[in-house]
Nucleic acid binder design. Structure first.
Lengths: 128, 128
DNA sequence: ATATGTGCAAAGCATTTGCGGAGAT
DNA sequence: ATCTCCGCAAATGCTTTGCACATAT
């Protein structure tokens, strides 16, 4: 990722403004509003370049395409077991520093919590 | 997953004995040793059935096929940033009970740590 | 006996790659 | 001017599905 193009700027802006993990298709749809000629290939190539640069992180859930986001400081991913919506939630407590077996060096981490979001909470109309 | 077949038994045994997350292809290769006629379709269908039953969990990393494992109590996933090997590590400390914003109900979680495994530790021959 | 499971081949998607042309520095 | 990037179309790779036969209960 060496040159600054309007496509990449747009992609990055979309990701920053959305504030939640987006699928490549979502990125494309939003990005097209700014750069109508934007193609899916460019989205994928930009994502890959940004991943390599550490500008982006990917989050996955079985059966869904990978979502990407600009890593926010100290937050976790919450995936609703019912509606599959993906949320970014603040990490309220300082998490325990975990000690790994000797030889392993941590460079990053990701915490995914599964459960029910407010819309799908048990007891809600329509919810199980 | 209602009937007990030799294929499913084999798949489950492979996953239990291996003790780390396996790709469908790895499952197939190991499973064939026990049931030579085993096909990839059956592996995928069994995985899906076991996921639905909660017998299995999936773990993903961008650019790699999904890996599956029988959930072990209290452990984390460690993915080496260099060789991409996936390890199951014990969770040494009791993890902090985290409080979610009101309305969110946690039902499960997954912690993935990225970094360097012992073989790829900085300073090792061949490692960066 | 009958519904479920299996394996093959084909289809379905997400993602990557080849290539000629456009754009950034 | 030159090297990188873009977009299209085709290819690739993982995963699912249709169908006829096999098998567990």
């Amino acid at each position: 990722m060496q040159r600054r193009t309007k496509q990449r700027s747009a992609i990055l802006r979309v990701l920053r403004e959305e504030g939640r993990p987006l699928t490549p298709e979502e990125i494309l749809r939003q990005g097209k509003k700014e750069v109508p000629s934007l193609g899916m290939t460019t989205v994928y190539r930009s994502i890959r370049a940004m991943l390599d640069d550490g500008v982006l992180v990917g989050i996955q859930y079985p059966g869904q395409p990978t979502r990407y986001e600009v890593p926010a400081p100290e937050h976790i991913h919450f995936i609703c077991n019912r509606c599959r919506q993906v949320y970014d939630l603040p990490l309220p407590q300082e998490e325990a520093t975990l000690s790994l077996p000797s030889g392993f060096v941590a460079e990053g981490h990701e915490l995914i919590v599964y459960g029910r979001c407010p819309d799908c909470a048990p007891g809600r109309p329509g919810a199980v």
